[in-house]
Write a protein that binds this DNA or RNA. Structure first.
Lengths: 183, 183
DNA sequence: TTATGACGTTTAATATAATTGTCAATTGAG
DNA sequence: CTCAATTGACAATTATATTAAACGTCATAA
């Protein structure tokens, strides 16, 4: 994100010193120094004060920092967002991009040893497919059941009840795709 | 601004509980409660974590909260932004709206007793006018000098050197307009 | 009824942001 | 050059956000 660099750039553009901006915003120059050098993460109240004094809106401030005009295509591993209902516990579901803006949802799933999507079977509209990249997992779809390893895959109508269980003693990773997105 | 209400609304729309969102974001449910009830102002780092877990971008979050589609027309007194270089000390210059987006700049100026824009005369492009609403002030424009009271006004080419001094013992308020904006 | 679980809130302890005072480096004037 | 003023950064203190654990409420089920 680099809030600090962004703030510094705007402040310089307007020809303001840290002290000048500070007095306008009702803060101190020290605070601005810490923010600009990324030694602290300001409260939104503090940041709002600073932006009001420049002046520039919060939306503008963050717009140029994160949303580029060109749609985002590439994602680093750490940019994936965890969408597992219980957080990254036994089962981790790391989503690629913001599925709400697309018709396709891709997940990087990790099942800890013993992890289980639960005895109550999942079921929802659409199609679902995936390929195992690490470890082993037992997949149940309707009446069918299989144990899949690296390189193996699955593809089914999501309206069929399904369940995933890591019955091994090592973590299992799957790259999966859903359409339309569930979350 | 009401960050709390905004966060709560979005969270509810996605059908998330405070605890669920907290674990996803790596924070605690208590923190979210405090934020949503406006009992604390989160750091931008914390807010980012929450929004990433929803997920929604910072720009989106603040866009609907402050920038309405219809341009802003009305401003409360406390929404004015202080643009005095030294902050609200002797001289307070409170700007109406964001002049950078307009060709007209309106200020609510307050001069403390003895306040002075300085012996070095100001000069810049454009026109400048104002009406005194409270107290008295000595205005010098070029060779001309006058003492103005409530109801009195001035209008001149800003390229002429000018200076404002409150020579009374009560504060002086002026509503002034500049075009184009100076700041 | 009692128990159980999920929910949002509150409180005391802790981690972190913000202030204060100071510093060295830079800039401009004499 | 020297001197004074201004800048951005830093260390120590103060203020505040965040945590962890509790609470009270509301459901649902035994």
């Amino acid at each position: 994100m680099d809030i600090g660099q962004r703030l510094k750039t705007i402040r310089m553009e307007r020809g303001l010193s840290q002290r000048e901006l500070a007095t306008r915003a009702g803060l101190t120059n020290g605070t601005i120094s810490l923010i600009e050098t990324d030694k602290t993460s300001p409260s939104v109240a503090s940041l709002k004060s600073l932006l009001d004094a420049i002046p520039i809106s919060m939306a503008e401030f963050f717009a140029t920092i994160e949303d580029s005009d060109t749609p985002k295509v590439f994602y680093k591993a750490e940019e994936f967002t965890e969408v597992s209902p219980q957080g990254p516990g036994h089962v981790s579901l790391r989503q690629l991009g913001n599925a709400r803006q697309h018709t396709l949802q891709v997940l990087h799933e990790t099942y800890a040893p013993g992890a289980d999507t639960g005895p109550e079977f999942l079921a929802h509209e659409g199609e679902e497919a995936g390929i195992v990249t690490l470890g082993q997992i037992e997949v149940t779809v309707g009446e069918a059941k299989a144990i899949l390893g690296p390189g193996d895959g699955y593809l089914f109508d999501s309206r069929q009840p399904h369940r995933f269980r890591n019955i091994g003693d090592t973590p299992c990773e799957i790259v999966s795709a859903l359409t339309p997105p569930v979350f």
